[in-house]
């Protein structure tokens, strides 16, 4: 804080003549006198009417802007929670996350398993898997190409055991499963693939 020279106080209080001051202190006194004169002058305030009218003329903010402002404004939120309810809530969340409540898909029996059939047939209109699991009946198990990438798939529940099968492409072309590791001659001049279905519940 700047200290004011006590002689200036004296001049302002009328106890000392301005002429008794140095030129520099006299300039300071003049500046102070001018500032005091300015502070004392009344400010040109707008009238009440003009202020009200200015507010009315200002366009109201849009609903989105008000929502954004509401969202952006920091607010204090206070929770009052009993620890016992917090623990109960955490336990329910953990239970729902860790323990499956039922499951989608079919119920799989004790002596049943899952067979996954995959074949690459770009441009095919339909692919079916036909084998000893469905009495070699074409059309009963269709593969799907969900991604349209030429990769056809089917996941099927079958009794555990070993089966021979082939793919039927577009209803007429019999093709072995080239991804299968097990192949056996079909006695008709081609090869069947073999799938071994293990019990799903082991």
């Amino acid at each position: 804080m700047n200290m004011i020279d006590p002689r200036i106080h004296q001049v302002l209080d009328g106890e000392l003549a301005p002429g008794a001051l140095s030129a520099e202190l006299r300039r300071s006194v003049e500046r102070l006198v001018t500032a005091v004169a300015l502070l004392g002058a009344p400010l040109p305030l707008p009238s009440l009417e003009s202020r009200v009218m200015a507010l009315i003329r200002r366009p109201a903010p849009s609903r989105a802007r008000r929502l954004l402002r509401w969202l952006a404004t920091p607010r204090a939120v206070m929770f009052r929670v009993r620890p016992v309810w917090s623990l109960a809530f955490a336990a329910v969340v953990a239970l729902l996350t860790l323990v499956p409540i039922g499951h989608e898909g079919p119920d799989i029996g004790e002596h049943e398993g899952i067979a996954q059939f995959v074949g690459r047939f770009p441009g095919a209109q339909s692919v079916h898997v036909v084998g000893s699991f469905n009495d070699w009946r074409p059309g009963s198990i269709a593969l799907e190409d969900v991604d349209q990438d030429g990769l056809w798939r089917a996941t099927v529940v079958l009794p555990a055991g070993a089966y021979e099968y082939m793919f039927v492409v577009d209803g007429e072309r019999w093709v072995p499963d080239h991804l299968a590791e097990r192949l056996v001659a079909d006695e008709f001049g081609r090869e069947n693939s073999i799938v071994i279905v293990r019990p799903a519940r082991r």
Partner: peptide
């Protein structure tokens, strides 16, 4: 073992 997603996808072949 079969994954849960494989089990969910699995379907039974239509009965002859």
């Amino acid at each position: 073992k079969p994954t849960r997603s494989a089990v969910a996808r699995a379907r039974r072949p239509a009965a002859p």
